[in-house]
Design a protein around this nucleic acid. Structure first.
Lengths: 352, 352
DNA sequence: TTGAAAGCGCTAACAG
DNA sequence: CTGTTAGCGCTTTCAA
């Protein structure tokens, strides 16, 4: 284990000053002869500039942070793959953290990133606007993916979420301003949910339920909007993020409202729970209950019956978010809304 | 965006030297009075020590690197969650990379980590011993997870793999030495595969196939050993890692050997491919073909029929690996072999 | 075009 | 117990 060559070693071996080496290696001006010599020596010494020195000097770490709720959720796996693909092609390191959907863990992780001087972050947020404002004020460039943080004041949480959606859709709203002025890459949840609800309606379903998770206020609201008033709030339930809680929510829903004939699951973990709960209660899909799941994951096709899904481009979402956070050269990039697609397989049938 | 307080700011505000602040904050000796004052000032200034300065000074980055083949493979998602859980409780950052199972990308990512002075690494290796030796020589503390790198010399790849397994099992072998002297956390593939094969044999199956992926030499060899000589090599096939190639391999297998009655898939992506291919060819599971899949993933239960699996503790594997790489205080930690469990569900039936 | 020199924020000797 | 000081490896003025 011999120690690595430093810029000083290269400078001495090449008979030039360290500044010259630095310039040559970062594409600065230098005479052809000098450049050639430095490059040769550097290669010969197998010199690799240390990110440590550079980072300290520039008071910032290259690369980016990446915060997701759960890596065993296939959708977030896809999202991460997208981020990593972009980062790799840029040669940038990615510091990852899994929040478990818990604002506290999220805050801890943010603290860790701050300590590391990571000043670019892609996050699927769990905390609300109050937890994120300080981060932005600290000078971090953040891009949200998949969803946005909730407005913190308990009062108009709903109003803000709606306003937010409208803003993303390019509609003007007389509602409160968006909670945070941060670019985001999200799927067009509104259209996705609307399409699913219309599809189910077309099949004759009247009592359609929504099975949501934490941080899915957008989708819940989109659902409320899609079914139209009056909304049967008993048909709108949420788990807390874990597989167990998702199962409990699904099971509770099926038992308390045996009259429902269709359910829209807000994510693949929730869809999984719905299938399990239905089976446990001897409800046949789609005979007794129709199911549409958010997220297209490989196993949706293996299910019995294969699941009809609202597909959203997880990988693209990650890639785009990484692009945004990387290209954030001063100018604040605009948010991106990605299309969803209803993929009809076998989990929905006519209402009977 | 105001700049962060530095140790110097704290020192001045507290009327002490920077060294004292450093000591207090890292638990060194200091008088109660001084300690209290420094702590108060630090809190008041919201001081967070910069990892940049510390890292440069210590010529190493804290935290660890994590290299996996594919984050959309649920098993690796589980493994990562384990690593992250351990890292989080230690307050250490994790730099992640997805290799796509490609040795070249792996090498690139290793280079990136070296540049960042990340000197601890947990890896599910894709490259062979030749690509890993330099990494070790560079002074990195590495712990392999899930599998070990292959011996590079084409000749005795198989022998080495076998020797390796035996070494892990604590057996002495007259075969070539283990390729690399690196601690690893792996599942007891040998026992897992053996159990699965015996189970299938007990069901009356004679022609059992193995559907492997890249880097699964251990499992392939365990399979060969479990079925015993003579091995029908046509029944041992491998994909290259992508879902497409896994599907092609599975499909090819079913078509070329319609006489097979059971298949063991070496991982969940391969299992998925097997289910898909079987369905496409109108082979019913388990009527026409029985299937045992490596990895217990949530969706295994949702499959029709629910999949019988060889479960391995992905999360534990990651957690243990992180512990090893963190605790690697000079002493080289011993490898860990985690148990597997055959979980019988509905994808295996009697041979007919 | 080039080199010397000044730090970036921190820790670790070494004195006091 | 505490302060001073010397760098860690690099980039970046500032002169030459």
């Amino acid at each position: 284990m011999e120690k690595r060559a430093t810029i000083k070693d290269v400078a001495e071996a090449a008979g030039v000053g360290v500044a010259t080496v630095s310039r040559v290696l970062s594409g600065g001006s230098a005479s052809a002869a000098t450049r050639e010599r430095v490059l040769a020596v550097a290669a010969q010494l197998d010199y690799r500039p240390s990110a440590l020195g550079r980072n300290l000097r520039q008071r910032r770490t290259g690369g980016m942070g990446l915060l997701v709720p759960d890596l065993t959720d296939t959708f977030y796996g896809q999202l991460c793959e997208g981020v990593l693909a972009c980062a790799r092609s840029a040669g940038e390191p990615v510091v990852i953290g899994s929040t478990g959907g818990d604002p506290e863990q999220e805050a801890d992780l943010i603290g860790m990133l701050l300590e590391q001087s990571v000043d670019r972050l892609i996050a699927v947020p769990s905390g609300d606007a109050d937890t994120w404002s300080p981060v932005l004020r600290a000078g971090m460039t953040v891009v949200f993916a998949d969803r946005l943080p909730l407005q913190s004041s308990p009062e108009d949480v709903r109003a803000a979420a709606v306003a937010d959606l409208m803003a993303l859709d390019g509609l003007s709203a007389a509602a409160p301003a968006r909670p945070l002025d941060v670019p985001a890459v999200v799927a067009d949840d509104r259209a996705g949910i609307r399409t699913a609800v219309r599809y189910l309606r077309g099949l004759g379903h009247k009592r359609i339920a929504f099975l949501g998770g934490p941080g899915q206020e957008h989708r819940v609201n989109a659902f409320r909007e899609a079914v139209g008033a009056p909304v049967d709030e008993e048909l709108v339930v949420s788990g807390t993020g874990s597989r167990d809680s998702a199962y409990a929510a699904a099971s509770g829903l099926f038992q308390s409202r045996p009259d429902l004939s269709a359910v829209v699951a807000g994510g693949n973990v929730l869809g999984e729970a719905a299938v399990l709960a239905a089976r446990e209660l001897d409800l046949r899909v789609p005979r007794d209950v129709s199911l549409v799941m958010y997220d297209d994951v490989p196993w949706a096709e293996l299910c019995a019956p294969p699941l009809t899904v609202i597909a959203q481009p997880g990988r693209d979402m990650g890639y785009r978010a990484a692009e945004l956070v990387l290209r954030a050269g001063g100018r604040r990039p605009r948010s991106v809304v990605l299309p969803t697609e209803l993929i009809i397989r076998g989990s929905c049938g006519p209402h009977r």
